[in-house]
Amino acid sequence: MDIVKTNSGWDRNQMAQKVALDIPDGSYVNLGIGLPELVAAYVPEGREVIYHTENGLLGMGSAPETGFEDPELINAGKKAVTAIQGACFFHHADSFAMIRGGHIDICVLGAMQVSEEGDLANWSTGEPHSIPAVGGAMDLVSGVKTIFIITQHVTKDGEPKIVGKCTYPLTGKKVVDRIYTDLAIIDVTDAGLFVKELAPGITFEYVQKNTGVSLNRYF
């Protein structure tokens, strides 16, 4: 009898919540487009986190109410946002000096593939007819102190996204610190990938089966 529930795990919001729990009070944080944006909603009460958006705003607030959108107050995903009290605006070279100069503490990004050594591929499939678009991803992974990845554990076709070596073009080499998936939280270390936490109902063996490289565990 199979008593282990192997087909569920954390949903998108629970994944975001897990990331938010690991963001210390007082951090300056840049959230990537899409799934990473959910993280902002789950910062525990009592922690002050300042959000940076690379198009020139430190102190990004939540989305405005309908009807109050300003096309000149947007985030990196070009969606309407607000500015908190104490926010500031700046030009692109200053904004990327914050990123490239190591002033941002944590960046949360999505991934197409992450390798055993923490290489990240998240900007291009490299297919001949795709339109390559990189945005600020390469700047973020090379400049921000800590890189968290939030992603489904496998692709829509069930292929592992955590692999021995990335087959897609790299965004950066040895840049990822921790991976949050629907199945587990995994640390990237010099000694390899270490599972830190399993989602409820998920076994280490199941995570291993859905991962393209050997995993270790802390527990």
Binding site: H92, A93, R100, M138
Partner: peptide
């Protein structure tokens, strides 16, 4: 671009800002 009728130099956003 797909028809090969325009050239593209793709630059990371921060590198673009800094080059300018």
């Amino acid at each position: 671009y797909r028809k090969g009728e325009i050239e593209l130099e793709l630059v990371p956003q921060g590198t673009l800002a800094e080059r300018i």
